Simulated scan of single mutants.
Amino acid sequence: MKNNDEILEIARKTLKIEAEAILNLAERLKNDFSVIVQTILRSNGRVVITGVGKSAIIAQKIVATLNSTGTPSVYMHAGDAIHGDLGIIQKDDIVICISKSGNTPEIKVLIPFLKLAGTMLIGMTGDTKSYLALQSDYLLDTTVTVEACPHNLAPTTSTTAQLAMGDALAVSLIECREFSSRDFAKYHPGGTLGKKLYLKVYDLSVNHGKPQVDKNTSVKEVIVEITKSSVGAVAVLDCDKICGIITDGDIRRMIEKYDNLQGLRAEDIMGRNPRMISKNELAAGAFDIMRKNNIAQLLVVDGEKYEGIVHLHDLLKEGLI
């Protein structure tokens, strides 16, 4: 059994080997990479990515990344392709074939059929003299010196290189398409990620109505209004214009400051420079304002019109923080 220090050293060695391999990929990038990106951008078809074994698993991840960032893609297992799944490939599709050796039997059987159909073939391989490399229209070189596996057998460094090359391809396409965070939200409507990209402040504040008082409202009535509210605050208005905010904290400070509460009005205890946010801003942005100003509520506005209050708890409930 290895001790703690020995285990950590193994892990560090593995990470260093794989990190060095990725850096070497960057040095070996050639014009083929740029041409591949430009070709995909101009294509009216999809990117079909295929492979076998561990390379097939990497292919599935790259497909998922491309689909989520605006490049329609399909996964096709090379073994299944030669047993009927070739029908997946449509006119104008581009095929990326991933293989460390570039000489696996399934790949060697598949390629002639791709050529016969006139399909553009992009090879991603660790052997630039392999059958796949020589038959490809364009080549992505993922050569690695050694696997991180101590026996130099299990695909480790090689699959990391493939994955990194796929990410480089995806990110290049993102930037060339000028794919924005708004675009990203269209493909990620569910879960926390989607909420951060599309959920707006008004979507949360509308649940609380519009807790408000006039600047001349008595303190007793202010307390009643805050109690009714679920956000621990009310906006203070002067002729329908926001002039302040009163929070639970303001009520506590009022009690500490004044011995006699008789005659106090809302404008006497309100905060006069309330933080506000447009109802059309992303809800995730509300948290940044709250954090920077050490507050738990924001007044929501539409121009100068008061629309409601968003609370820190709203963001927590939605999983945005």
Rank of each mutant, 00 (worst) to 15 (best):
V52L: 10
F113L: 15
Q38T: 10
N152H: 07
N260Y: 05
L320M: 09
S55P: 04
I223Y: 02
E9M: 06
E20D: 15
G70E: 09
I62P: 02
V231K: 05
A170D: 06
T128S: 13
F33I: 13
I36C: 06
I36R: 06
K2I: 12
K13S: 15
V219G: 03
N3S: 09
Q38C: 10
I36W: 01
F184S: 06
T143G: 05
K241Q: 12
K228Y: 02
L66Q: 11
M276C: 09
S68W: 05
M290C: 10
L264G: 14
V301N: 03
R291L: 13
N3H: 06
K317C: 12
L193E: 07
M165Q: 10
V224W: 00
A154C: 04
P211N: 09
K61E: 10
K91E: 14
N31S: 14
K215A: 12
A164G: 08
I269T: 02
L299W: 05
T125D: 07
A154Q: 08
T227Q: 12
F184W: 04
V171F: 09
T69H: 13
I7F: 13
G263A: 06
A26I: 11
L316N: 11
M1Y: 02
G87A: 05
K186A: 14
H77I: 03
A161Y: 01
E307S: 11
K100T: 10
L299T: 08
R291F: 08
G166L: 01
G209T: 03
A161P: 07
G53H: 04
L264M: 11
Y187P: 05
T145H: 08
Y75M: 10
M290S: 01
I295R: 04
Y75S: 14
V63E: 07
G51V: 02
L163V: 00
V146S: 14
S55V: 05
L116N: 15
A11I: 15
D85E: 12
T247D: 14
M276N: 05
S229P: 06
T65G: 12
I82Y: 02
P155C: 00
M290N: 12
I57A: 13
A117W: 00
A78M: 11
I17V: 15
S218C: 09
K196H: 10
L169P: 07
E27Y: 08
K200G: 00
C176T: 15
S180G: 13
E27R: 14
V224D: 02
K100S: 11
E256Y: 09
A161V: 08
